[in-house]
């Protein structure tokens, strides 16, 4: 039954492709909820499975078995499988915890600094302008919500496009997208395959904000041109930010622009089931993980002499 614990470790590898499909087929705001919830459940099942493997390994050690009040040896598959798996699981869990703690610490520090500085500044509505030659703009959540925009970004856009940008950032803040992004980051630290899902969640959040902004300003093309112009302006100037490894696929910006320019896709009911494959995969992972943990618990009770096999 220990094999059941491997299911939550393997299934996340299917998630990136299924996540893309979900975003393609559903409205971005709906997809964002499904993707984030799935990523969290997949991550949770993965951590639970790893934790159970670690415990299994520990209870196999003769020195530790009495601590678990085991009177019989724990019945598991061959030690040649269980012990290396437990060692590997311990390593992976430790590494995940360390990178997660480091990331959380950095993010919290940067966020606090941004908030403190933004609060100290007299506000023109919710806008916080930074005098910088690099075109950049982002939503700064908190109380009150702020939009941070550099002067270079403001100058590279026309008046209507600036309104489009503000509408997009306000959509992020109003919908609380930072919670989704934080959840995606948390999941990404639990399983390597969930990193690709995190990128899809980021794209879903942007797409959702684009759609809300398009409704607010009443013009999809305006949002599309604002995004394209802002991206090109940012690309032309040398960036101080490190370049990320070039990806073979089309980046998120053209996808967003294309989605806004395309006529509203008719989301047929026939295409929906494929969009729900991710949820099926998540449910399977959760079920297998739960069954694995329950079985482990049962085996421990047998070893403690509380239950008969």
């Amino acid at each position: 039954m220990t094999a059941l614990l491997l299911v939550p470790l393997v299934l996340p590898f299917l998630a990136p492709a299924l996540a893309r499909r979900t975003l393609d087929r559903l409205a971005p705001a709906t997809a964002l909820w499904i993707l984030t919830a799935s990523a969290l459940v997949l991550a949770g099942a993965c951590v639970a499975a790893l934790g159970t493997l670690v415990l299994t390994g520990l209870l196999k050690l003769p020195a530790l078995a009495p601590l678990g009040e085991l009177v019989h040896p724990l019945r598991t598959p061959s030690d040649y499988f269980v012990l290396p798996a437990a060692v590997a699981a311990t390593g992976v869990l430790t590494l995940s915890a360390l990178t997660l703690a480091r990331s959380a610490f950095r993010q919290a520090r940067a966020f606090r600094t941004a908030r403190t500085q933004a609060d100290r500044r007299p506000a023109a509505g919710d806008l916080c302008v930074v005098d910088s030659p690099h075109p950049d703009a982002y939503a700064l959540p908190g109380r009150p919500h702020r939009i941070v925009v550099t002067t270079a970004m403001l100058r590279s856009l026309g008046p209507a496009e600036r309104e489009a940008l503000f509408a997009h950032e306000r959509a992020h803040n109003r919908a609380g997208h930072h919670y989704f992004l934080a959840a995606a980051e948390l999941a990404a630290h639990c399983h390597p395959a969930l990193r690709a899902v995190r990128d899809t969640i980021r794209l879903a959040a942007e797409r959702a904000a684009d759609e809300t902004a398009a409704t607010a300003v009443g013009d999809r093309r305006l949002i599309a041109t604002a995004i394209a112009r802002a991206a090109l302006a940012g690309h032309a100037s040398p960036s101080t930010r490190p370049d990320f490894a070039p990806a073979a696929t089309t980046g998120p910006v053209p996808q967003r622009v294309a989605a806004l320019l395309a006529p509203s896709p008719a989301r047929s009911r026939a295409r929906r089931p494929t969009a729900l494959l991710l949820m099926a995969c998540t449910a399977l992972s959760l079920a297998a993980g739960t069954a694995g943990v329950v079985d482990f618990h049962h085996q421990v009770e047998i070893a403690q002499g509380e239950e008969s096999p």
């Binding site: 703009a137 930072h178 995606a184 995004i227 802002a230 690309h235 070039p246 980046g251 910006v253 053209p254």
Partner: peptide, 22 residues
């Protein structure tokens, strides 16, 4: 992670694609 930026880094080829769209 917590800050949703308006536009992400462009991949190679994205620039041409965007110019064509505009």
């Amino acid at each position: 992670t917590v800050l949703a930026r308006f536009v992400a880094q462009l991949n190679p080829g994205d620039e041409q694609l965007l110019r064509r769209l505009l």
